[in-house]
């Protein structure tokens, strides 16, 4: 099993979109020499936007209750929340495209975030279990999320937006390589 199995579904030019362009920008940012990141499915953008939209509508409507109850300036609260969620919606595509993982020789590299960047390296041997879960919206789009659990709660490797067959392949691959590289706690 190799890493090449996983990019079948994935848009290869997505990798280029997050590659930094301006040099001054690069020096400030955390960057990695690796370029061949596996990206999550573009369909996950839609999934993420829908769930953001649902939460946003509920919260905005909820925050408008004081306005309907007669508080004159209450509309500002709703408008504020609406603006906040619109901004989140606007950056969702970029945020989703920033999520990436890379199966290296002995460890899994995971990245996410544009504004708040995070890179994690987890040795395969540290795996305690792999979890695939699917929410209702993600399931409608044929996606699932894969969680790589170690003994440390803070490892936090959660890869969302994987097509189901990719997720299952990845899970089987991770279990197989973890078995050959098993380490203690």
């Amino acid at each position: 099993m190799s890493t090449a199995d996983h990019d079948s579904e994935l848009d290869s030019d997505l990798a280029a979109t997050v590659a930094p362009t301006a040099t001054s920008y690069t020096a400030r940012r955390l960057e990695r020499p690796e370029t061949e990141w596996q990206r999550v499915s573009p369909r996950y953008i839609v999934v993420d936007m829908i769930s953001t939209l649902i939460t946003g509508v509920i919260v905005t409507v909820g925050s408008l209750i004081p306005f309907w109850l007669g508080w004159e300036q209450g509309w500002m609260l709703g408008a504020g929340f609406a603006a906040l969620f619109l901004i989140v919606l606007a950056v969702t595509p970029r945020r989703v495209r920033s999520i990436g993982y890379l199966l290296r020789e002995d460890d899994l590299l995971f990245r996410r975030g544009i504004m708040f960047q995070r890179f994690v390296a987890v040795p395969y041997g540290r795996m305690q279990l792999v979890d695939i879960s699917r929410g209702p919206i993600a399931r409608a789009f044929g996606l699932g999320e894969l969680k790589f659990v170690t003994a440390a709660a803070s490892s936090g490797v959660l890869i969302p937006g994987l097509p189901l067959d990719t997720a299952e392949e990845l899970r089987d691959h991770l279990v197989a390589v973890a078995e050959t590289r098993r380490a203690g706690l």
Partner: peptide, 24 residues
């Protein structure tokens, strides 16, 4: 267990980053 490196907007403005070693 694993290692990670983080950077938020404030740290980025200062060309800094934070590192975490994950244990139980």
């Amino acid at each position: 267990q694993s290692v990670s490196v983080h950077q938020g907007p404030l740290l980025r403005a200062l060309r800094l980053a934070s590192v975490h070693a994950h244990t139980v």
